[in-house]
Amino acid sequence: MERLERRLGLLSALPIGILLLLSFVMPLLLVAGFAVMPQKVFELAHLPDFSSFAVIWEQGYYKSLLRSLGLAFLTTVILFLVSWPLAYGMAKVFGRFTLVITILVVLILFVSENIRLFGWSLSLMKGGLLEGYLRAWFGFSFETPLYDWPVIVFGMCYVYFPFMLFPLAQGISLVPDDARLAASDLGASPARILFEIEMPLAAPGIMVGCLLTFVLSAGAVAEAKLLGGRSVIVLTDDVESAFTFGQNWPLGSALSLTLIVIVALLALVPISRIDLDAIMGRKR
């Protein structure tokens, strides 16, 4: 019986397994393969060569890597702070109204990210929707916030908001009401309850939300391009140029691989510590 269940399990996992192998593992291996190819050679038969990684350091590409990670970190922190109250409300306070918020947030996802970002770009540009109308109606003008890093962070917060909100709400819903009441009864102030009861018990949701937003923001392309207008060079820009204008595939691959490894390391630590079953509601 148990063997049958195991066989069925393996069989059920087979389709997605093959898909992941082809669409996830293969490209990764390809990237890894290209990353250790000597530069400007493009031949498959060669010994591993790490000169591309040296270039990352020598030509200052690590700066855009740090910039990407920094912006992603900032986005994650801001999103966490902004989403927590709403997520809390959705999990504990709003009741049926939660569904309305969920639908509204999900609805946004139906419009392509690029179109939404273009919308912001058109709204915020000099002579655009906002500034243009303000100038025409009130004679009030302001410099466009576009083409600088804060607007990139804003764009990423805007785009990745649902990826923080829903895991957080799920995490907070894992906090038993009684635990909160008991803590208060035992003398805990609301701040102590937040830090010592609610946040630790919602930790799986917090981790999933933060990881999703961090990983997505670190690899984001469109925000920097459409809102930042290439005035801020993030790592993904470098990767793209290396593969296109630069025709330096080894460099592009090495940059990608570096980002992948750093993000994977950052992600593995929390993932190994959280209980995904708890998030999915199979326990407690």
Partner: peptide
């Protein structure tokens, strides 16, 4: 109060 659920902190 000792709660019906006991409300112990699982973490």
């Amino acid at each position: 109060m000792v709660f019906q659920s006991l409300a112990l902190f699982p973490h």
